[in-house]
Design a protein around this nucleic acid. Structure first.
Length: 137
DNA sequence: CTTCTTACA
DNA sequence: TGTAAGTA
């Protein structure tokens, strides 16, 4: 069932700590379906023991980064880009790229905010029109 | 009973 | 993402 091959004798770090897909799903409150999906998208690459997936502490960290990126509104492709930059030519490029994506995200949110404000105003105008029309009758 | 793959919604 | 189906 829910057994971790090696566990919490050392709160963290042990690269020998392994998790099953259900361990991680439960810990992060997501479904195993999502975790498998992230693997399909190449964001995580768990090892296999036969046909079963085995996740390392490192995989767990990557999963955390994926979930954090999602909360910030980034796509899996963008998250993958950032994660894959870790360890490459230092973290210089990773930081630069992250900053770039943050700006892209910021602009997107600004546009959405404009659209929402416009829509709210449209509703106000329409509502008033309908209201006065109703009273006229 | 849990995990896996595949495929459709 | 969820879920159904058929396995291992």
């Amino acid at each position: 069932m829910l057994r971790v091959i090696t566990k919490e004798l050392t709160p963290m770090s042990d690269e020998k700590t392994e998790y099953t897909i259900s361990d991680l799903a439960k810990e992060f409150e997501i479904t195993s379906r999502s975790i498998r999906h992230y693997e399909d998208e190449k964001l995580i690459t768990p090892t296999r023991r036969g046909v079963h997936r085995i996740y390392s502490a490192r995989d767990r960290v990557r999963l955390q980064l994926i979930l954090r990126g999602k909360r910030l509104g980034f796509s899996l492709a963008e998250i993958k880009e950032i994660i894959d930059l870790y360890g490459v030519e230092g973290e210089q490029r990773q930081t630069e790229r992250l900053l770039e994506l943050i700006n892209v995200r910021r602009e997107s949110l600004k546009q959405q905010l404009k659209d929402i404000k416009y829509l709210l105003n449209e509703f106000d105008v329409l509502e008033e029109k309908l209201t006065s029309e109703h009273q006229a009758k």
